[in-house]
Amino acid sequence: MISHLVELGHERIAQVVGPQTGAQARLRRALYQRVLRDHGLDDSWWAEGDCTAAGGRVATRTLLSSVDRPTAIVYSNDLMAIAGSARLEGRSSPF
């Protein structure tokens, strides 16, 4: 997925992750960050949500509030992705 986004020209790829309280969640984020570094990209573009629609909206808002906004956002689950995508498009979430 990261390789595909890089091929499309994205240079600031962010990730919205779930709570980083468990080893599996931290490992998933660490692997994601390693792949970004392997492509020569900044791996610090991420925000933590709570795996809910509201968490996806808040995390997306956080990422969009930075001066250099991400050019792509990858979500850890479908619920956060749908709500975050709606936020990106300026719509209210269907949830």
Rank of each mutant, 00 (worst) to 15 (best):
I13D: 08
P19M: 03
M80P: 00
S65T: 08
V35A: 09
P94H: 07
Q15D: 03
T62M: 10
I82Y: 07
A86H: 10
H39P: 00
D38S: 11
P70H: 01
T60S: 04
V17P: 06
E89D: 15
G55K: 06
A25G: 03
G56T: 01
Q15H: 13
I73Q: 07
H4I: 09
L5W: 08
S93Q: 09
G84F: 08
T21K: 04
V17C: 13
R69I: 02
G40Q: 02
Q33M: 09
D43S: 14
E48I: 10
A14K: 02
A83I: 06
P70D: 03
H4A: 14
A23C: 01
G49R: 06
T60K: 01
R37C: 05
R12T: 05
M80Q: 13
D43W: 02
S44D: 12
I2V: 15
T71L: 01
P19F: 01
V67I: 09
S92P: 08
G90D: 08
A59W: 02
L5Y: 12
A81W: 06
A14F: 02
S85L: 14
G18E: 05
T60R: 04
L5Q: 13
I13K: 08
W45C: 05
Y75R: 04
A72S: 12
A14C: 05
W46L: 08
R12P: 03
W45F: 14
L63M: 06
R29V: 10
G84L: 09
R91M: 14
A25V: 02
R34P: 01
S93H: 09
A59I: 01
G9M: 06
P70K: 05
S3Q: 14
D50L: 06
A53I: 07
A25Y: 04
T60Y: 01
R29Y: 06
Y32S: 00
L79H: 11
V17N: 12
E7G: 12
V58G: 03
C51I: 11
G22N: 11
I13E: 05
A53G: 14
L63S: 02
N77F: 08
R12Q: 07
R34C: 00
V74Y: 03
A72R: 04
G18Q: 00
D50A: 01
M80L: 06
L31F: 01
M1S: 14
G56Q: 03
G90T: 04
A83H: 03
D50C: 05
S66N: 10
H10Q: 07
